[in-house]
Design a binder for these strands. Structure first.
Lengths: 252, 252
DNA sequence: TTCTATATGTAAGATTCTAACACACTTTCA
DNA sequence: TGAAAGTGTGTTAGAATCTTACATATAGAA
C-alpha cells in the first residue's frame, strides 16, 4: 500500500531522473502532497533519492556518467516525449531485433523499454548506456564520429555493420517534419544512416512530437509514405493525421 | 575573481560533500548570499554539483553511494588510477591522433585530458561521453557489441575502422600482468581489438596500477616488450621495473 | 574616455518546506 | 472484547528558502 507507492515513486524517479512534486501529484492524485513529501523523505533516508527544491531526483541518475542526464536540454517537451516513448515501448516484441536512433526521444524509449530479450542496434551513446543496464537486452553500438551535441555517432563505415546484421524494425525520430519535405534532420551523415536504416528494416516506426511539425531541417531522410507507424502526442493536427491514415499508416 | 570563488566553492563541496548556504556565507563573508546562489546555479549548470534545499552537494559525494556494476568498479583503487591518468594525460600532444581503450583507468584519463585539438579513437562508451564534453577533441567511437560490465564495445567489424584510419599512439590499460604471461584481459574480442591496436599504433603506452601485477586473465594481448612506456603508481616493484627499463621501456 | 557586458547587492514577493495537530485505521495484548 | 499503541494520512499556518526585478558597481573593449 504505502510501500507500493514508495517503490513506484522510486521507479519513476529512476526512469525520469528528476520529478517535481507537482508531477508526482499528477501520478498519485488520490494522496495528498504531504504524503508524497513523506514518501520522498523516506526514500532519501534510504539513500535512494536526493530531495531537491521542488521535488527529488534519482541517485542513479546522478551516478551516471555526467554526459546526457539532467544537464542537457532534456527538459524541452519532456512530457510529450515520454508519452510517445511509452507508446513506442509497448510496440517492441520479445525475441526481435530492432534499430533505435540516438535522439532524446529515443533516450526515453530506452528508459521505458522493459527488460526483455531483444537485440538492439543504436547509434546513440547515451541510449546505449541506458540500455546496457538491462540484463536481457543484446546491444550493438554503431561506431563512427561522435556528434557532440546529441551524443550520437554516424559514419560511412556504419554500412559494414548493416551488411552483416538484420533487424525487422526501426524506431526512429526526426528533428522536423512537413508533408512536403518529409522527415528531416540536421546532419548529412545522420540522414545517410537513417536512410540506410529505412532500407534495411522491414518496418519503420517514427516517433514525432507535435512541436516538430512545420519545421524543416536541411536533410530529408524519409518521406511521409515511407513509414509504417507514426507515434505522436495528442496535439497532432487532425488534418495531418488524415494524410497518414489515408495511406494506411497507423497514427497513434 | 568570480571564477576563483566558484572553483573554491566546488572544491569545498567536493571535500565536505554538502554545504548549506549559511555555511558558504561563513566562508565568503564579503559577498552576498545572492551571489553565492548564483555561483551554485552556475556550478549546477556545469553538472558539478546538485542544488538541494538549503544549499548544495557535490556530485562526487553522491557518486560515492555506489551500487551499480560500472560505478562500483570505478571506486576501487581510485586514487592510484587518477594519478596514473594524470601522468598519461601529460603525454598527449596537440594535433596528434591516439587510441584510448574503454577501461576505468581510461575513463579517468578522459577526465584529466586537457581540451586540446586531438583526434581520439575509443571503444569505451563512458570514455566517449566524457570526451564529448571537450570542444576541441575530435572523437570517434568504435562500434560493436556492448559489454555491459565495462561499457565498452568490441567487434570483428571494428577492423574496418582501423583500415581507414591512422593514429600514432595508443594508450591502453590491462586487467592483469605477469612477466611470463604479459598483459591480459577478460574477453577474447577485446583482446583481439587491443592486438589490432598494437599493430596499428606507432607507439603504445600502457597504464597499469600495481594492484594488477601478478594476476592472470584468460587472454593475453601484449607481451612485456611490446610496449614503449609503462605508466604506473609508486607501489610498482623495483625488480619488475628493472625488467622494463632493461628493454628500454620507460617506466613512469 | 565612453560604452557595453559582466558581476554584485537589495528587497519584495512567490514558492516550497516543516511542524503541529487531528483523524482514521490496524495491530497488540491484557 | 476493548483499550492502547502504532501507523498512515490530511490540513493548515507559519517558517525557510528561492526567484525575480531592478539598482549599482566594476571590468574590458572600442
Amino acid at each position: 500500500m504505502k510501500r507500493d507507492r514508495v517503490e513506484e515513486i522510486a521507479e519513476l524517479l529512476d526512469k525520469r531522473g528528476k520529478l517535481t512534486l507537482e508531477q508526482l501529484d499528477d501520478y498519485f492524485p488520490h494522496v495528498s502532497q504531504m504524503t508524497l513529501r513523506r514518501d520522498l523523505f523516506q526514500l532519501e533516508q534510504e539513500g535512494r533519492i536526493i530531495r531537491v527544491r521542488g521535488g527529488a531526483m534519482s541517485v542513479k541518475e546522478v551516478q551516471k556518467v555526467s554526459g546526457e542526464p539532467y544537464t542537457k536540454k532534456t527538459t524541452i517537451h519532456t512530457d510529450e516525449k515520454i508519452k510517445i516513448a511509452q507508446k513506442a515501448a509497448r510496440l517492441v516484441d520479445e525475441n526481435t531485433s530492432l534499430f533505435i536512433d540516438g535522439g532524446t526521444t529515443a533516450m526515453y524509449l530506452a528508459k521505458e523499454l522493459p527488460d526483455i530479450n531483444v537485440h538492439i542496434f543504436t547509434n546513440g551513446l547515451a541510449v546505449a548506456i541506458e540500455l546496457a543496464q538491462k540484463k536481457n537486452v543484446h546491444l550493438t553500438v554503431l561506431g563512427g564520429q561522435v556528434m557532440k551535441d546529441n551524443l550520437s555517432t554516424a559514419s560511412p563505415v556504419a554500412k559494414s555493420y548493416f551488411d552483416n546484421t538484420n533487424f525487422e524494425l526501426a524506431i526512429i525520430s526526426a528533428s522536423a517534419f512537413t508533408p512536403e519535405n518529409g522527415f528531416s534532420c540536421a546532419s548529412q551523415i545522420e540522414a545517410d544512416l537513417l536512410k540506410m536504416t529505412r532500407r534495411k528494416a522491414k518496418s519503420m516506426y517514427m516517433m514525432l512530437d507535435s512541436s516538430k511539425i512545420g519545421k524543416i531541417m536541411p536533410y530529408t531522410f524519409a518521406r511521409l509514405e515511407d513509414i509504417d507507424v507514426l507515434i505522436t502526442d495528442d496535439n497532432f493536427p487532425a488534418d495531418l493525421k488524415e494524410k497518414f491514415t489515408s495511406r494506411n499508416i497507423v497514427v497513434m
